[in-house]
C-alpha cells in the first residue's frame, strides 16, 4: 500500500471505518434495537404498553432491590476503598505495602462472576469456613441471627469484593495527584487538617469520586454471574429476571424483555447523567 497523496487528507475518515462498523454492529445498533423494541407495538408503530408492563409489583420489586444493592455496594465500596487508598497514600503507611496492595486490587477487581460466588459460599455459606468457625468456637449461628448470603446484605457483601478494589485502583492515582504543597500551603495559612480536606482536597477529588460511584453502581447493577451462581433465581434482581426471560422467552412475548433491558439502560443512564451533571458543576476550575 502506498502512502496517501496529499489530496487524500479529506479521506482520512476512511481509516475509522473498521472501528465504526464494529461499534455499530456489535454495540450501538444492538443497544438501539433494544430501546426501539421497548416502544414498538406488535404490528409496528409506537406504544408505551411494554414499558407500562414494568410497573407491576414483582418487576418494580426487582428494580428496587437491584438499585438498593447497587447503591449500597457502590457507596460502601467508595467509602471503604477511599479509606484504604487514603491509608496507603496520605496515611503514612510504609511504602512497601502499596505495590502488593495495588496488584491485589487489580486481581480482586477482576475476580468477579461465578468463582466469586463459590468463594463466598465456601466462606459464609451454611457450611462455609467463617460460619462454621463462629458456630463451633463462639456458639454464634449467624444464620439463626437472620444472616443469609442469598439476601440483600449477603449479595452486597459479596459485590464489595470487587467494588472496593476497583475504587482503590481508580482513586489512588487521584490521591497521588493531591500535591503536598496544597496541604502545606493550607496548613501554613492556619487551616486545620479538617479544613484542608473540606475546602481543598475533597472539592478537588469530587469529580473522581462521583465518577467512580457511577461506575461502581453500573458495575453492580449489570452483574449477573455472581448473583446467578450464588442464588440461582431465588433472589429476583433485575438482571436475573431478564436472564430468565431471555432463556425462556423464545416463544413468548419478547417485549417484556425489551422493556426490562430498556429499564436497565435507563437506570445506568440516569446514574451516568447524574454523574456528568455533578461533574460539570464540580469541575468549573479544570481546563
Amino acid at each position: 500500500m502506498a502512502a496517501p497523496a496529499p489530496t487524500a487528507r479529506s479521506w482520512a475518515w476512511l481509516g475509522m471505518l473498521p472501528f465504526t462498523l464494529f461499534a455499530l454492529m456489535f454495540l450501538l445498533v444492538p443497544t438501539m434495537f433494544i430501546v426501539v423494541g421497548a416502544f414498538r407495538a406488535e404490528g409496528g408503530g409506537f406504544t408505551l404498553d411494554h414499558v407500562m408492563n414494568l410497573f407491576t409489583p414483582s418487576i418494580l420489586a426487582a428494580f428496587s432491590i437491584s438499585i438498593r444493592i447497587s447503591l449500597a455496594s457502590a457507596f460502601l465500596g467508595c467509602v471503604i476503598g477511599f479509606a484504604v487508598a487514603c491509608s496507603i497514600t496520605v496515611g503514612g503507611l510504609p511504602g512497601w505495602i502499596r505495590g502488593p496492595l495495588l496488584t491485589f486490587s487489580g486481581v480482586a477487581s477482576n475476580f468477579a462472576g461465578v468463582p466469586l460466588a463459590f468463594a463466598f459460599l465456601a466462606t459464609l455459606g451454611r457450611l462455609g469456613l467463617v460460619t462454621v468457625f463462629l458456630r463451633e468456637w463462639f456458639g454464634i449461628n449467624i444464620y439463626a441471627l437472620g444472616f443469609n448470603l442469598l439476601s440483600f446484605w449477603g449479595l452486597t457483601l459479596t459485590y464489595l469484593f470487587f467494588q472496593i478494589p476497583l475504587m482503590i485502583l481508580i482513586v489512588t492515582p487521584a490521591l497521588d495527584g493531591l500535591r503536598r504543597e496544597w496541604r502545606e500551603a493550607a496548613e501554613v495559612l492556619g487551616a486545620s487538617r479538617a479544613q484542608y480536606w473540606w475546602m481543598v482536597a475533597f472539592p478537588i477529588l469530587w469529580p473522581t469520586l462521583l465518577g467512580t460511584l457511577a461506575l461502581l453502581f453500573a458495575n453492580a447493577f449489570g452483574a449477573v454471574a455472581t448473583a446467578y451462581a450464588l442464588t440461582g433465581s431465588s433472589l429476583s434482581i433485575v438482571p436475573i429476571v431478564l436472564f430468565a426471560q431471555i432463556r425462556g422467552d423464545v416463544l413468548q412475548d419478547p417485549h417484556i424483555g425489551y422493556a426490562l433491558a430498556f429499564g436497565m439502560i435507563v437506570v445506568t443512564g440516569i446514574g451516568n447523567a447524574f454523574y456528568i451533571w455533578m461533574r460539570s458543576r464540580a469541575e468549573r476550575w479544570i481546563k
Partner: peptide, 11 residues
Amino acid sequence: MVFQAYALFPN
C-alpha cells in the same frame, strides 16, 4: 509561605 510550584488551590 510561597512555594516553588505556586501551590494555588486549583478549585
